[in-house]
């Protein structure tokens, strides 16, 4: 009951923020002056051609009218038509997003498992070898630029050693599995296409490692410091005084408390994953949403930009909402 009203309130707040987000996206795309028409037609296009184009795109109308059209479009789920692909932006997103989702899920799994595991070991065996190792691992992870590690790994494992495939989601000669979810791993299993499954998995390894590494690093850091923090608390002393043994003290009494801040970080890390996805997708030629947004930005394809960034913000907000709810469920003090 208490948790229910908490969720409702957070949902309402999120809707409010998302309205603001749509306004901000509009401001970025339409009010901040750049010249989409110039970008499409080239700088030297004759003036009447430019005017004609503007009229066709509705850019000659007052901003307020454009804004109202845009908001009504949003409510109907219409994000406009991409200037480049000439397809509805919604359809583009539907095409590109599953690739990003699949990559993000793999990277999250990898980073959460590795990060929490290393973080706990690091805190429990503080100042021992495993702690030093984990700390070097994590500080390097948050310091190295994703695009650089990506390029180096690509150079090593694809170009030099040839152990792993380089770019894209599937090899040139693999036919994509029939589309159910858009996630190749799942689709290939559903259609029992093991060939495609293996190929998709191989293609996922490098990008997931690259994308997941920095996330794993920050999760390990937070888990470690949160665990150390919890191990200092009074109730840990109580638990030890009960004589239940070190293992139960750590895994029953400390871990659940220590994971609460980690959950928040996993939410933030997901934001980092979306950012990282932009860079990772660019390096690995991954046909996902990140690359779609970058390309739209390079071409000033403003309907695609607006749709893409808005979609990312919605996804990010939803993830954070889910994280908050998990947080509240885990920590009874948070349900205020």
């Amino acid at each position: 009951m208490k948790l229910g009203s908490f969720i409702l309130r957070r949902l309402f707040l999120m809707l409010l923020v998302l309205f603001g987000v749509s306004v901000l996206v509009f401001v970025i795309a339409k009010v901040i002056p750049a010249d989409p028409v110039g970008a499409i037609l080239g700088g030297n296009a004759p003036i009447d051609l430019v005017e004609d184009m503007k009229r066709r795109l509705g850019l000659d109308r007052p901003l307020m009218n454009q804004f109202i059209d845009y908001m009504f479009g949003l409510v109907r789920g219409d994000l406009g038509t991409s200037l480049k692909s000439n397809r509805p932006v919604v359809q583009d997103i539907a095409n590109f997003f599953p690739a990003t989702l699949e990559l993000a899920i793999c990277a999250t799994l990898f980073s959460v498992v590795l990060g929490i595991f290393l973080g706990i070991l690091s805190a429990v065996y503080r100042n021992r070898f495993i702690d030093h190792f984990a700390r070097v691992f994590s500080i390097l992870g948050v310091s190295m630029p994703v695009f650089w590690t990506g390029l180096l790994l690509l150079l090593l494992f694809y170009f030099r050693l040839g152990w792993l495939p380089g770019t894209g989601r599937l090899g040139l000669f693999t036919t994509p599995p029939a589309k159910y979810t858009g996630l190749y791993l799942i689709d290939s299993l559903i259609s029992l296409n093991l060939e495609a499954f293996k190929d998709a998995l191989a293609h996922l390894v490098l990008p997931s490692l690259v994308l997941g590494y920095s996330a794993a690093a920050s999760i390990a850091r937070i888990t470690r410091s949160s665990m150390l923090d919890v191990l200092r608390q009074d109730f840990i002393r109580t638990a030890k005084a009960k004589g239940i043994g070190k293992r139960l003290v750590i895994y029953r009494h400390a871990l659940r408390n220590a994971l609460i801040p980690v959950i928040t970080i996993i939410g933030l890390t997901f934001g980092g994953l979306l950012e990282g996805a932009v860079l990772t997708e660019t390096i690995f030629g991954w046909p996902g949403l990140g690359r779609y947004i970058v390309n739209s930005l390079l071409l000033l394809d403003y309907p695609a930009i607006m749709g893409g960034t808005l979609f990312v913000a919605v996804i990010y907000s939803l993830v954070n909402l889910v994280v908050d709810i998990i947080y509240a469920a885990l920590d009874p003090r948070m349900r205020i």
Binding site: L24, A29, A34, G272, E275, V278, I293, T309, A313, S317
Partner: peptide, 18 residues
């Protein structure tokens, strides 16, 4: 909150490009 609703790099990309 509105600014925080975007992953940082993506907002920076959009602003920079526009």
């Amino acid at each position: 909150d509105i600014f925080l609703a975007f992953p940082r790099l993506i907002l920076a990309m959009a602003l920079s490009a526009m």
